[in-house]
Design a protein around this nucleic acid. Structure first.
Lengths: 140, 140
DNA sequence: GGGGTTGGTTGGTTTTTCCAACTGACCGGA
DNA sequence: TCCGGTCAGTTGGAAAAACCAACCAACCCC
């Protein structure tokens, strides 16, 4: 989903409130035909929906579904990472309704501790993955 | 960075502990030449480093830098989203050192509240963005 | 000495992306 | 009524990227 070029940028724009074809095209720099394909794909994946805002000619806006809304934390975190490592100064800050500039933190629901390195071990659902050498964590 | 095909998958593998070329190639399904390019790119971006583990012939492992480690929460959250919306059952769970299966939550550092829809408003660093109609949030 | 592992590179084909131009249906102003 | 602009795409051809199978060098173990 997010591995396709521009799909994350498209979502970013929609999170900003830019919901129309031309606006998204301008802000992402995506070629219009590629954008058409991406939007269709995101609609198919039920991340966004096409909402008609004008009868004739038919004009549409792209709105987030509930599933799409749940991607917001991912974007927020990715943005934070980019702000820290890729740019000098954050080009945009999100103001939280508590009045401060948002700094998102990720923590464990159960113990409340913030996630840091060395706290996690993966456990795989089906043993055949590892057995087939398909995911040989050990041998590396 | 993450928009390029396979780069997120490569990082996932390294987070799993798969650090060598052949293992990453197997688990991601990336063509070897593409993988070569991605790894080089990630090294250039200082997300991972090439660590020699054998002298002759020279053999390398790819390890996360500090910046790379900080991408882990992003992957965790993205995985959580995929588990919820794209697959039936999570193929892998991360065990937190507190003893439970990790469910990551994102919250505001200042007020501690979990991030939900409708709590955030964007503020842009340079007004020319909006002024140029380059990012016209309003007009949509 | 034969087979397997490892970390790539190479050459040629297929798939995507890119880009500029075009379309059709409107709207507002002169 | 004509002219320009907006909007959401579509089209065709060129450029870039991905894909794939084969190859390579330098080991290792038996």
């Amino acid at each position: 989903m997010v591995g396709e070029k521009y799909s994350l940028l498209v979502l970013r724009e929609i999170f900003f409130g830019v919901r129309r074809f031309d606006g998204i095209a301008r802000n992402t720099g995506a070629p219009r035909d590629v954008l058409t394909a991406r939007l269709r794909h995101l609609v198919d994946a039920e991340v966004i929906t096409k909402v008609q805002y004008h009868e004739r000619p038919p004009r549409f806006e792209y709105h987030l579904t509930d599933a799409g809304q749940e991607l917001r934390p991912v974007l927020l975190l990715l943005t934070q990472w980019g702000d820290r490592h890729l740019v000098d100064r954050p080009p945009v800050v999100w103001e939280h309704h508590c009045g401060t500039d948002l700094e998102p933190v990720v923590s464990c629901r159960d113990c409340g501790e913030e996630i840091g390195p060395g706290q996690l071990t993966p456990r795989f659902a089906s043993p055949e993955w590892t057995a087939a050498g398909h995911l040989d964590v050990a041998g590396s």
